[in-house]
Design a protein around this nucleic acid. Structure first.
Lengths: 238, 238, 238, 238
DNA sequence: GATGAATGAGTCTTCATTCAT
DNA sequence: TATGAATGAAGACTCATTCAT
């Protein structure tokens, strides 16, 4: 099984690195274009890390990630000085794919007013296939939540999903007592891998759970919710 | 915060240990009744382990558990020769409490035919308060799933919850395309702790998610589910 | 070659640990007497560290120290959680021996008014034999100079040496434009080991240099000194 | 602070490299004259290495030296295949400056018979300012002491200093029981940097210590010296 | 039975040195 | 030639587990 997304989706990290390099080359000689093999290694490491975070949890030995990526351990450390940096890049990488999926869903929802909730449903299942649950362990523990790139990624996701939800709400298809934080956290939790377990049997299950949860989001609301609707920002408050 | 249940619920583990000790005493003189302080230590270790598994994940250092339990590390190892043994005992401990809650719910459901789904709802929220999610990491990884005590505990839970669901199904309140495995896995996932995160903000959230998920379980079904309904046994197949 | 001091000099660290243990035992049961083998290991580690710091510098691998001490590496870390802790204990250990030597010298100087400078001279050579130079690398770099035990040790040395110098000054034998910092720093520097070099040939040399330096301290002063006389405290100011 | 000497002092290393290149060019066409930027890089690396050896000790990472020199690390390795080569070149570089200072002092001493000791004194303080102490770590450890260039450099220093001392001895100003090794080793030790410490406060101190030591070298001798007077060659015997 | 201490295996991280552009 | 990147071989430190009191 590979976690690579569809070929049409560019890899933000690579792109940004490449772009900034090109820009720098054009203006200042101080930041030369990264070498092709270095970029390739960087990609391979992020890919291996995403797979192994999903498969074995956020505590997987970095040496194993390096081994799966086919590089020496020190190469991993050159690109990502500590575990937090690698985790962050993986989060950003996956975030980009999620954003792209959300934008796809927004396009669908714009094309078909009556299908707004279905567009949301599709996004949720797609996000699950992107292993969004792999990001969950990184939302906690020894992870620098204050990094500006993470803020931005979170905001980008939140904007798209909020818009998706708002359209479904406006169409009277989504209950009004929930917010984007409710959806994203439940989505993350329901798709979290059981570390060390062969995902095979789990994968089908996940989509059942998501489907059931989504059913609970539809109008009319079938129960009263405790607590308050929360955005992603609220989650970081203590 | 303490995770102790209501005083009315006896602690199976302690009881069983005591009983077997008594039995042994009655039959063979070689296994004397455990000393009172030994039993007390055993309880304290299990309690500390449950708290810390929830708080820091299943990988928390055993020495830290011993410290929180107020015993020496070697005492922990005397009672639980390795990490797996401790994990298993914690699972069994929590399982017992879950079973007791399920039986409470069954009693309620028997008293009020129309409230069968509400009884199920109550059980789910109670199970969340019992930190059933703490057991989730133990369902995976380096955990001996074939231990007979675990089989038995799983069956005991499954029997009660299946009965609860069956009654709600019979009352036409629970959709018919789901099975006990669907409920228990989603319940575990949605209540999984984010390791290292202060649970404070999370706790309220969990009950929102459960409520939404439960709404999705009600009749009439609002979507078609992919895959097949699964029991807990199915989950262990690979 | 062994760096052990004369048998009559007690080891402060061991003593203090033992004492505090005894005291604690007498008053509170919380700090039990350290085990005999643990104390022995602690001593062996400190001894090995002193030797190897002298021989190979402050960067000697801790695993090698453990090996020479005949213990596992983790035992070293149990006693001294990081390199700084071990360095500090070695410094304190050597400091105690230096203090004891200084007090010997004070006793001699009290007995023979005319021999005050000779008493100082003897102290300096004795301190060299105690490998005071081994402490020099620790006075710098990544070393927590603000630890209260170090302050105290420094003050204890300073008090004795200041008194020694004051008596020699009062007897008109020591030039008046120098302070304790001048003596101690030069003493440390002149006795610093050349890492990796067989000390054999160096040892004799050191005493020549000290002798020459001491000659320069005598009255009448033969030159004017640049800068200002400094105490040990002054050295830590930037 | 920069350690560069006065502009009038030529840099032997550069000169020699250039000469040998020229010579080679004249005889064999295979070794072309080094490019100007290569020579410049070589100088910058040696300069950076000298500074950083003094500042952080002989173990400073070579990559850091390359960074301070403003060149890539591989460039450093092109010029100096391993750490030993770089250390040796730095030693030779500093040696040249020391020799030049010694020759200045010889000139002064020739001009003023009565001031021979003062000339020696001046040389010692100047040598300190040249960071001769930075060479001390290189006299030990994993350093190839048998390299012919080092022999030659040592002999050149020794010749000049011996001559300086001989004149002072002849003038009756320098005690007769010491040799050049005594002076040079003490000089090196007293000027050794404390790695990681801001040298600021130390610098003034160093000159006090040198002054005191020099006072001890004057006639009449105030004590009897242990051991034997040693030359620099004697130091390498084990 | 309870405990503090010991330990070896394992992980993270750095750095000298080599490689490929 | 100059350079950024890659790499394996250490070294610091942790932790599950065993040992000795």
């Amino acid at each position: 099984m590979t976690f690579r997304g569809p070929p049409g989706l560019p890899d933000r990290t690579t792109e940004e690195v490449r772009e900034s390099a090109v820009t720098a080359t054009a203006t200042q000689r101080r930041v030369p274009r990264p070498r092709a093999d270095a970029l390739r290694n960087r990609e391979r490491i992020i890919g291996a890390a995403r797979e192994m975070f999903v498969e074995f949890g956020a505590d997987v030995p970095l040496d194993e990630i390096a081994r799966r990526a086919g590089v020496g351990n020190a190469t991993l450390y050159r690109h990502f000085p500590d575990r937090g940096d690698l985790q962050r890049e993986v989060v950003l990488h996956v975030s980009d794919r999620i954003v792209a999926r959300a934008e796809q869903a927004l396009a669908e929802s714009a094309a078909d007013e009556a299908g707004t909730f279905e567009a949301l449903r599709g996004f949720v299942h797609d996000a699950a296939d992107e292993r969004i649950g792999a990001l969950c362990p990184m939302l906690s523990a020894h992870f620098d939540h204050d990094h500006p790139d993470l803020f931005e990624a979170r905001d980008r996701i939140q904007d798209r999903v909020e818009e998706l939800m708002e359209r479904a709400r406006a169409a009277g298809q989504l209950r009004t007592d929930i917010a984007v934080g409710d959806l994203m956290v439940a989505l993350s939790q329901l798709t979290r891998p059981l570390p060390g377990t062969p995902c095979a049997n789990m994968d089908g299950f996940i989509h059942r759970h998501l489907q059931l949860f989504l059913d609970g989001l539809m109008t009319p609301a079938r129960s009263e919710l405790p607590g308050e609707a929360a955005t992603l920002e609220d989650l970081r408050k203590d």
